[in-house]
Write a protein that binds this DNA or RNA. Structure first.
Lengths: 117, 117
DNA sequence: TAAGTAGATCGATGTCCGTCGATCTGGAGT
DNA sequence: ACTCCAGATCGACGGACATCGATCTACTTA
């Protein structure tokens, strides 16, 4: 899989007809697309999207034990989703004794948000 | 646009006390989360994200034959991605003779964009 | 030191996804 | 009618994903 986005010479169209305006290039380069797609993918699960929503609205750090009863999933599954969000660079966590506190990394959603606007 | 989940206020974490109360809140906005997650999931692939980017920048309808040479993937794969975007309600297509033209549905990204902002 | 607890990790399972070559569909040109 | 072509669909394959119960880890408390 190449990064190359060059246009190949297209086959000739019938009787000089075009199907559309000539060349279109993606303005978003591949690395940007990879980064934003990774964030979008992490948000592509209803539970993770709601998790981010809860964390964002709280504006502080939220204990995992507060999150567990909000969703009808087992604790390991929630932990799995939080890890996905961590791996995507959307949230981070802090351990304090037995409890773990999660928060949204500032500007983590900025690039995708700006692209969507 | 938000999931509207209120959390119990944080309390002091003294010895022997719970860090929080396991309150269950009605998930009134689950439908919103499902809808936005579906859009995010569709954007969670670099090629699909670039596809949407090209279609959005073009502001008109783009022929599939223009899209194929932009990406280093086989034609059925591109068709598969376009179908994913169609199923997510992000794009739609028009057939004109041999050619198919794709375009971004207006406001399709609006809800997710507003939530991200 | 022993018991208890919050949260992460492991292992298994069933499902979904991205990719491709091959094939099908239907309009266009000869 | 026949051929050519653009694009969609099919079938298969390998890998990723969501989910769970069981277990592990690390800290707190008796």
């Amino acid at each position: 899989m190449s990064v190359d986005l060059e246009l190949a010479p297209k086959q000739k169209r019938a009787a000089g007809e075009r199907c559309c305006e000539p060349v279109v290039y993606p303005d978003v380069q591949r690395e940007d697309a990879l980064r934003m797609a990774e964030v979008a993918k992490a948000l592509g699960d209803p539970i993770r999207l709601q998790l981010v929503d809860v964390l964002r609205k709280h504006a502080g750090k939220v204990c995992v034990c507060e999150l567990v009863p909000l969703f009808d999933i087992a604790q390991p599954t929630l932990s799995h989703h939080l890890k996905k969000l961590r791996d995507a660079g959307i949230v981070d966590s802090e351990r304090q004794g037995l409890w773990a506190y999660y928060y949204v990394i500032p500007d983590a959603l900025k690039e995708l948000s700006a692209w969507l606007t």
